[in-house]
Amino acid sequence: MDFLLKPFQYEFFTRAILVGVMSGLLCGVMGVYVTTRRMSYIAHGLSHAILGGAVLTYVLGLNFYVGSGIWGFGAALLIQYLTGRRVYSDAAIGIVTTACFALGVAVISTYRKFSQNFEAALFGNVLGVSPTDLWVVTIVTVMLLGLVFFFYRPLLFWCFDREVAQVQGVPVVAMDTLFALMLATLLVVTLQVLGVTLIISAVVIPASIARLLSNHFGFMMLISGGLGASISFTGIYLSYYFDVASGASVVLLSTLVFAGALVWTNYRRRAKRYDLPLHIDHS
């Protein structure tokens, strides 16, 4: 037992586990919107754009969360604006996010004094979270889950059929803005767990597993959130014993679970097919 609880004797590890679980839960829940609205690329691009904001806020001496959050939100709105102006959505994402990312790289190459922080931003450094980070992640988790709860119906309708949602009275432009804000906030606060390069996996993989297991949007959110939290916990925990980067451990574990779910659902589908009667009763 002592062997199993050994990692928890370090305060930094306990903090990492807590932040990891909350981030996994949030990414899992939000990932259902991202995947069902086919927005994976925008989420991936935004995480890169946020790096530019993170570097700028560091150089200007601003608060990381506020600066990067505003930057990410601005990038999301700019993508929306360009998409409505005869620019293809994937092209708009490519233009805005790579420009923001390049700005970050340019500032880093000029200052040349925060290579370690840059690496943490790229690949995550969950073991380096401070008590303040823990508070921020906790507050944001409560806030975002609250928004998902209170806006469940309009967001679901907006996600499924934006045009008819508008006819039925859903304020779709407000929903666009709200979701951009939620996504930017999610990516900013969870960046330190997996980093810019890996964060998309926490958003997309649990939601994709949930889609394999459920045909119901609400259940998908529960499954995806639960999986995100438990995979983050297990991944970070195992990284202690296997001595691998915690971000990579979480991503590899979630990929493994996805592969398992894929095999299992395929097996179930085939088994069901064999259970069907071979003749059709026309009576």
Partner: peptide, 13 residues
């Protein structure tokens, strides 16, 4: 991932 009933319920927004 929605059922027929859930789609109909959207009209009650």
């Amino acid at each position: 991932p929605v059922t027929a009933e859930e789609v109909v319920m959207m009209g009650r927004y």
